[in-house]
């Protein structure tokens, strides 16, 4: 058994973060984060799909003919996504309705394809599994941060529970409804990237 390579989990959380550094999987990250709960469910589903598709592809990596590898990868990923979709529909139907097409879009989520191409095609199954978990978690960190900020300031709740007390509203506090609109997600991701790169100068882009 291969030794437990901790770096594979740690790096995607910070300096190789799939969203802010590798720029993968932006589409879903922005669209499902208006509330915390769907963001969390989405992050979990993506982690599961990335980890297991990485393992399967890594097992098959020497038998897949290179010319048709994209379609083989797509088929395996979409099988996993169908499973996830059916599970979500069975156990958390409300959330699955809110996520609407974005569960299906995990198939074309660039994180999945990107990690398959970049890692699973050339590494052992166990390492690929760790890499999948790590990248899933890196994605989850950003999603949950966005979900918390947007739900707290946009609707004054977290996970559906009221956080900002009623007395604040009596003093004239207003929810910032721009936060739940799509544009704010883009601007918040921009700010996260800014903060992260300001703290770690090596990540800045040279042009």
């Amino acid at each position: 058994m291969a030794e437990f390579n901790f770096k594979l989990i740690k790096n995607p959380l910070s300096k190789e973060n799939p969203i802010t550094i590798q720029v993968l999987g932006i589409c879903s990250a922005l669209a499902v984060t208006a509330k915390l709960q769907p963001a969390f469910v989405m992050a979990l589903s993506v982690t599961v799909v990335v980890a297991f598709s990485n393992v399967i592809i890594s097992f098959l990596r020497n038998t897949i003919p290179p010319r048709i590898r994209i379609i083989v990868q797509l088929v395996i990923v979409s099988l996993l996504v169908i499973l996830v979709d059916q599970v979500l529909k069975a156990f958390v139907y409300d959330v699955s309705k809110q996520l609407s097409v974005f569960v299906g879009l995990i198939i074309t989520n660039c994180i999945v394809m990107g990690r398959l191409e970049a890692f699973a095609m050339s590494n052992k199954p166990f390492d690929s599994f760790l890499d999948g978990i790590g990248n899933g978690l890196g994605y989850a960190v950003i999603l949950i941060t966005l979900g918390v900020v947007r739900e707290l300031f946009g609707s004054g709740t977290l996970w559906g529970y009221q956080i900002i007390p009623e007395s604040f509203y009596n003093f004239g506090y207003q929810n910032n409804s721009l936060m739940i609109m799509p544009p704010m997600a883009l601007i918040l991701v921009g700010i996260i990237i800014w903060v992260q790169r300001a703290r770690n100068k090596e990540l800045c882009e040279k042009e």
Binding site: T20, V23, M181, P182, P183, M184, A185, L186, I187, V189, G190, I191, I193, W194, Q196, R197, A198, K201, L203, C204, E205, E207
Partner: peptide, 28 residues
């Protein structure tokens, strides 16, 4: 944008996100 002075950590990806956000507000 290539000719404007963007703060170094915001260069490239960061500023693109923020501009897209502003364009999205316009489209709203």
């Amino acid at each position: 944008l290539r000719y404007s002075q963007v703060p170094a950590p915001l260069k490239g990806l960061g500023i693109t996100f923020i501009i897209t956000g502003l364009m999205a507000i316009a489209f709203m």
